[in-house]
């Protein structure tokens, strides 16, 4: 690649510039800032530090697992635990904007979706939207959502379900199938 390498050679050959070289050198030296010595960084250093980072990630993950189990035992004992999950099914053109969950007449969860979350749901991910505690017996669950279709038109859906809580933890999947037809836009699966 032709660079400027030809320039100084040409110029340096000229004797009359010798004086200028001297002055230029003096001028540049004068304009130098405080010396900022750069430290040498070796590949071994980078690799060694990377391994330490991996080890600490492992440590944090391990303690997170234990702490999460403790948290669940403390806050959501299995005999009262209920978890509600949201998944998407049906039209890929549907964009889920928001969800609201009511349990026994009280709003227990609200969520506005980011585009990444919608994409994750679309790919088959399941969002745990609520975890709480309820007594054994029947509980009224109402799921409402707001979404948009491919043309950007907003539509809403709402459906109710009876959560029959027994002794063990209860999991309910709320499946948003989309569409404007009320009644079949949301379905529930008892796990």
């Amino acid at each position: 690649m032709p660079m400027l390498r030809s320039l100084p050679e040409e110029i340096m050959q000229r004797k009359f510039l010798k004086q200028i070289v001297f002055y230029a050198a003096v001028a540049i030296a004068g304009s130098l800032p405080i010396t900022l010595q750069a430290a040498e960084v070796t590949q071994e250093q980078i690799k060694g530090l990377d391994e330490q980072v991996q080890d600490i990630k492992q440590d944090v993950l391990q303690i997170t697992t234990e702490l999460s189990l403790l948290e669940e035992k403390l806050l959501f004992p299995s005999n009262t635990q209920v978890s509600l999950f949201v998944s998407l099914a049906g039209s890929e053109e549907m964009i889920l904007d928001a969800m609201q969950i009511e349990m026994d007449g009280k709003v227990v969860a609200k969520h506005l979706y980011s585009s990444k979350e919608v994409e994750a749901l679309r790919l088959g991910g399941v969002q745990r939207i609520y975890t709480g505690n309820i007594n054994t017996g029947d509980h009224a669950l109402v799921a409402k959502y707001i979404g948009r279709d491919a043309s950007g038109d907003e539509f809403r859906g709402s459906s109710d379900f009876t959560v029959a809580k027994a002794v063990g933890p209860k999991f309910v999947e709320i499946i948003i199938t989309g569409g404007n037809v009320a009644g079949n836009a949301i379905s529930f699966q008892d796990w």
Binding site: A120, L121, G124, G125, V126, R128, E173
Partner: peptide, 17 residues
């Protein structure tokens, strides 16, 4: 992935993001 466990679905929800 064919989902058969909700909590594994939750793992995927975060992995996909």
């Amino acid at each position: 992935i064919e989902l058969r466990d909700l909590y594994f679905g939750e793992v995927l929800f975060y992995a996909y993001q």
